[in-house]
Design a protein around this nucleic acid. Structure first.
Lengths: 156, 156
DNA sequence: TATTGTTATACTCTATAACTATA
DNA sequence: TATAGTTATAGAGTATAACAATA
């Protein structure tokens, strides 16, 4: 390996390092500020993601724990805890599945749908503030990169 | 507002939503897979970030808790916990500052430096796998976007 | 036997407030 | 009075293993 190659490799490592450090920081900030933005509703970003999944037209008839688990990339065990807290607060309901008696359908309760409606405005605003100075096309590019990153990591 | 404007706004919201959902997923995966990659060392991604901060040449003489807090964007209280666990495992030392007797210098112990050396290889490999198919220039762009995102969010 | 969802457990991380010792 | 770091506490999330009910 030539000196130049070593330099190049060191530069790449340096960039990778910076990228992940910034990503790590941004992830922390997302969790902190996101939870803060929804503070008056007492909803964390994890709960936000569950509510978001269940509020999709596709999920109108509920989702099984397994489906939610694959969709959100959260283990079933930990999802049980999350769902328990959301159920405790009255935002979701668990209904036994008619087709497979091992399975349950998780869906938004009326109170959960109401909550999601009230969350729309602050979430909308959060997005706008967070993505300020990032153009529409750049947002598309960003999604693409993050997607690649996420898919690569999930294979590790 | 015209119909076309409404359509445009809906499209933007849809994109924002997707962006944050993917970001959320990627953040979870980073934490899970990152911790997994360093499993044999028993180090979490948060601890990884502290070790990384302290291993920089700039931090050779240690960092105060305040400096670490600002650098990592973790509150002092929570940092105390993190540092406690790292100290318990023998990876860092806390030394009273000679200049300001309220302050302490946090630095890597010999065992911590040794750990960081051993972590280099798996971290290096993790980076390479995670960033596969993302060119050098795209990595730079990605850093730029994430930076903007992070700075925007921290102002919220 | 495999799958669905849960329980149990232990640990890490986060948020908030209050405290101490210096400055 | 303000700052540096810690303590205390409660809650939320995560990892792992094991379990009951059903397929």
């Amino acid at each position: 390996m030539t000196t130049s190659d070593q330099d190049k490799e060191a530069a790449i490592y340096e960039i990778n390092n910076r990228l992940f450090f910034r990503f790590f920081q941004a992830a922390n900030t997302l969790h902190t500020k996101g939870t803060q933005a929804l503070e008056e509703f007492g909803v964390t970003t994890q709960q936000w993601s569950v509510l978001g999944a269940l509020s999709r037209p596709k999920a109108e008839n509920g989702m099984s724990v397994n489906e939610l688990s694959r969709y959100l990339l959260i283990t079933r065990q930990n999802l049980t805890g999350l769902l328990g807290r959301l159920e405790r607060d009255g935002y979701i309901v668990r209904t036994p599945s008619t087709e497979d008696r091992r399975s349950i359908r998780v869906s938004l309760s009326p109170k959960g749908k109401e909550l999601w409606k009230n969350l729309a405005e602050p979430i909308h605003q959060f997005y706008d503030l967070a993505l300020k100075n990032i153009s529409f096309d750049d947002r598309l590019a960003l999604i693409h990169y993050i997607n690649t990153l996420q898919q690569n990591m999930s294979k590790i």
